[in-house]
């Protein structure tokens, strides 16, 4: 009985939805309650950049590749903004243990990103992030059109290629 239910569940779940996915350009990012660096409640549906590209970057103060990624991107962020109008939003998954370090950490680095906290991983879960760093590119309609996990030097250029394509309303596929 249980096996049949599980099977039926998956058939109903996958078949129609996957066939619909092909017609969609991207899915809308979810609306989840997170916090500002000050500790105030904030809903992700309020993310906005006047119809221009948004990048959402999941990171943590204990994640070395995340810090490397954000340091590297920051070197070119002003240029990227000028060229494409992109806004980078960082979401820290630091929990109650290390959450209080996030604001001084971000400020200590002198980062210009718009920063938020996701202390219980609700937004991380809703976005299906396995481990930070994970980066999402959203088009002007708020649809997720590109994502990448992990960071190694050189990935920032791949990200910028994706941002430029999305800003120009072209499909963002990975560079070879």
């Amino acid at each position: 009985m249980k096996k049949i239910i599980a099977l039926a569940f998956f058939i109903v779940l996958f078949h129609p939805v996957f066939s619909q996915e092909k017609e969609q350009k991207g899915r809308l990012f979810p609306s989840v309650d997170i916090k500002t660096l000050n500790g105030e409640n904030f809903n992700t549906s309020k993310f906005s950049n006047d119809g221009k590209v948004i990048v959402i970057d999941f990171w943590a103060t204990w994640c070395k590749p995340c810090i490397e990624e954000l340091n590297t991107i920051h070197e070119s962020y002003a240029e990227w903004k000028k060229e494409t109008g992109v806004k980078i939003i960082t979401v820290s998954v630091d929990d109650a243990r290390t959450m209080s370090r996030v604001a001084p950490f971000v400020n200590g680095k002198g980062w210009d990103y718009e920063s938020y906290l996701d202390p219980n991983g609700d937004f991380k879960r809703a976005m299906n992030v396995n481990m930070p760093p994970q980066t999402f590119v959203l088009n002007g309609k708020g649809e997720i059109v590109w994502q990448h996990t992990g960071f190694e030097q050189g990935n920032e250029e791949e990200l910028f290629e994706a941002i430029k394509k999305v800003a120009a309303n072209k499909p963002a596929t990975e560079s070879k």
Partner: peptide, 19 residues
């Protein structure tokens, strides 16, 4: 799911994602 699916046929469908 079945219900949302049958409704979704007529109007814009939902999205499924995972990890």
């Amino acid at each position: 799911f079945y219900f949302s699916h049958s409704v979704a046929q007529g109007i814009a469908g939902g999205a499924i994602h995972g990890n």
